[in-house]
Design a protein around this nucleic acid. Structure first.
Lengths: 251, 251
DNA sequence: ACTAAGTGAATGGAAATGATTGTTTTGTTT
DNA sequence: AAACAAAACAATCATTTCCATTCACTTAGT
């Protein structure tokens, strides 16, 4: 088996349940304990997982109820979320993807008269009691921990919907486009892109240059990116030459 | 078992009721007393719980606080919910309607390996982090306050689903059948009945004789009723002559 | 054939665990 | 209030589990 493939698989398994024991990885991936350890070491040093005794825990945009309550969103995410919310005009129909940043965006939407479509349970729970927001939930198989509905049913439901804007997050951005770690999620997000007139990507600057398991879409599918000023000039050029508008918040 | 996993579990248990005894943790987590003590010490020093003699109390908003804030379910509902949960065998595919009683049923489902379909946001939020439960959400227009998905999209989604059992609530029961106050809700519930092999109705005894806006279905659509012993003998005859099984819990 | 990278097994050391001990606290009885 | 028993606790120790390191082996590319 190829190295990258094995590591991707480890990441995927780690993401599913948040925790993976080393032993489980040994049996599921089929490599020796030593190799898995080395992989975990690599993935830890590259910041994708956190090694713990006996296994590893997934880092990244998985929002479990634990995470959202304990560690609040970082300052970058807060600022990005607020700016993104400012872009949204009253009366719009907004499609909201799952993720910690989009959840923060949802927090800032309260008070505006909006129609909100989402496949994220945390976002729906947040907005459910707001009379000024008409909420439509996109059903499907609910992915554990993140509380995001995915799969064929979600895709089918999305086919019948239309929104003026999609606010989405991503696992990584390169010149090739956007990436995410979960194949089912990618499929659902692709359908979201099709359903929306305008695509607004929220991504803190650490996402640039990151590449994850599944390719989601080319850069040209995105209309604008809201990010923080940690983005290098280099990436700014890549993004703007692809015809995307960039909104940069100062931290 | 991995350290972090065990500590997360301790936190989760602590959160549920606000306080946990050490002994309960020993049996539920399956670690030795020493280990649990060490974990409690750690969680205390990191400020997540407060150790007390005999156990520990959760810091922050415990779920039971949350529950008691929004009037806790009555004793009847609790008992009905527990009995209903006992009827459900591991491995079943259960369709759960919205409502406070069905939410209580959902609470008692944790621990069983099940497939759960629901259109209720509160139920989905409750079950979303339970690894033993595969959760499928039925999307649609989210009705404010109750957090239940309704409407054409929900009906369409339900047409493609099938469950071994439906647990539903109702606004009122007469010899003519079941009633509910919301036309959209009635439509969705009718489709639920079609999608399920067996229909279990949860209804406290005050519902008998009540008639609401919309007629939902005849009594013959229901297979069994779980209720409390406030039901009069008269109603018992009506129900049983319609061929329904009745489960009566003693208050 | 040689090198470099990757892999798997073996080793010793570190950390975590469970059982045991003796001590402190709590509640009950007199 | 004093004496006692039961429960809860902290401290210690042997055992187990986990980990980093090392080394030998395989594979792929030059």
């Amino acid at each position: 088996m190829i190295v990258d493939e094995r590591r991707s698989r480890i990441l995927q398994i780690a993401e599913e349940s948040g925790f993976v024991s080393l032993q489980r990885l040994v049996t599921e991936v089929g490599a020796s304990e030593s190799t898995i350890r080395r992989d975990l070491e690599f993935l830890d040093s590259s910041g994708q997982i956190q090694r713990t005794r006996g296994g590893a825990s997934y880092l990244g945009d998985s929002l479990s109820d634990f995470d959202s309550r304990r560690s609040r969103a970082s300052q970058e995410k807060q600022l990005i979320a607020r700016r993104t919310a400012d872009l949204i005009a009253p009366g719009e129909t907004v499609l909201l993807d799952g993720g910690t940043t989009t959840l923060e965006v949802a927090r800032h939407l309260t008070g505006k008269t909006l129609q909100v479509l989402t496949n994220s349970l945390p976002i729906a729970s947040l907005l459910m009691n707001r009379p000024e927001i008409e909420l439509i939930f996109i059903g499907g198989y609910v992915y554990p921990r993140t509380g995001v509905a995915l799969g064929e049913q979600s895709v089918e439901a999305l086919k019948k919907m239309h929104a003026s804007r999609l606010v989405m997050s991503t696992g990584g951005i390169t010149a090739d486009g956007l990436f995410n770690s979960n194949a089912l999620l990618v499929e659902t997000e692709r359908q979201m892109i099709r359903a929306a007139d305008r695509v607004t990507l929220v991504a803190d600057s650490s996402k640039f240059g990151q590449r994850a398991l599944s390719h989601l879409c080319p850069l040209s599918d995105v209309d604008e990116i809201v990010t923080d000023d940690g983005m290098s000039e280099e990436w700014r050029l890549v993004i703007e030459s692809a015809g995307l508008k960039t909104e940069v918040v100062r931290t």
